[in-house]
Simulated assay, not measured.
Amino acid sequence: MSPRGANATGGRELFEYAVLRVVPRVERGESINAGVILYCQARSFLAARTHLDVERLRALDSRADVAGVRAALGAAESVCRGGPAAGPAAGDGPGRRFRWLVAPRSTVVQPGPVHTGLTADPAAELDHLLDVLVR
């Protein structure tokens, strides 16, 4: 560590992220990316950004429950924010909420695998990942 307190990674911290996928017909396994969850323990940062492309969703399933999908994506964002809107997870720390959100499940909105990286700005990294992986 240098005298100014910079670490060996140039001030960047380890983060973990997972893509939120919408699987309108679970039995078919087809999906579209609709969000990203990012957790940076060193910065106590946990957030999700979502973007639902309804046209792409309808291409996979013309009868998809768009309102239900939006509600599920919104719930993931609420759990990340914590507080009363997070429901039973409200009292959990950000790391525990992240682990709960990225646990495998067989529902319409599913997390993809967890990946890692380094960043100096978790919020900007999350916006970048949303642009690259979802939009």
Rank of each mutant, 00 (worst) to 15 (best):
F45M: 08
G83S: 01
V79W: 03
G68Y: 06
V134R: 03
R25V: 15
G93H: 13
R63M: 11
D131Q: 14
R4A: 08
V109N: 03
G5K: 03
L129G: 02
N7Q: 03
A86R: 05
V134P: 06
D92Q: 11
N7K: 02
N33H: 09
V132F: 04
E27N: 09
L46Y: 05
E16W: 15
D121S: 06
T116F: 15
T107S: 12
D127N: 11
R97D: 01
P88N: 01
D92L: 14
V54W: 13
G10V: 00
A18Q: 07
V132Q: 12
A90S: 08
D131C: 10
L52W: 12
H51A: 11
P113T: 12
D65F: 08
M1E: 06
V102E: 02
T107P: 00
R28V: 11
H51Q: 14
G82R: 10
G11F: 04
F98C: 02
D131P: 07
L118K: 10
S44C: 03
A67N: 15
F45R: 08
A18I: 01
G82W: 08
V134T: 09
G87H: 04
A123K: 05
G68D: 06
R105F: 05
A76G: 03
I37D: 02
G35H: 09
A86F: 01
P24M: 09
D65V: 08
G5Y: 07
G117I: 14
L130V: 13
R70T: 07
G29H: 05
R21M: 12
T119E: 02
E30D: 11
H51D: 14
P113D: 08
G112W: 08
R12Q: 01
A42G: 10
G82E: 02
A103K: 05
R56F: 13
I32S: 02
R97V: 06
P3Q: 08
G91Q: 02
S31R: 12
A59P: 09
V132L: 15
S31H: 05
E16D: 11
T50C: 10
L133F: 10
A42P: 07
Q41K: 12
A42K: 08
R70L: 14
Y17T: 03
F45V: 13
L52M: 12
Y17G: 00
V22F: 11
Y39L: 05
G95L: 05
E16L: 15
R56K: 15
E125H: 05
A59S: 13
L133V: 03
G11T: 07
E55I: 15
S31F: 10
M1K: 00
E16H: 15
V69P: 03
T50E: 04
G82P: 04
E30P: 00
Q110Y: 04
G95E: 06
V26N: 10
R28F: 11
E30R: 09
V79P: 00
L46P: 01
Q41S: 09
N33A: 13
L101M: 13
A47P: 14
A64M: 12
R96K: 07
M1A: 13
R135F: 10
N33R: 06
E55S: 13
L73N: 01
A85Y: 00
L126H: 04
A34T: 07
L101F: 06
E55G: 10
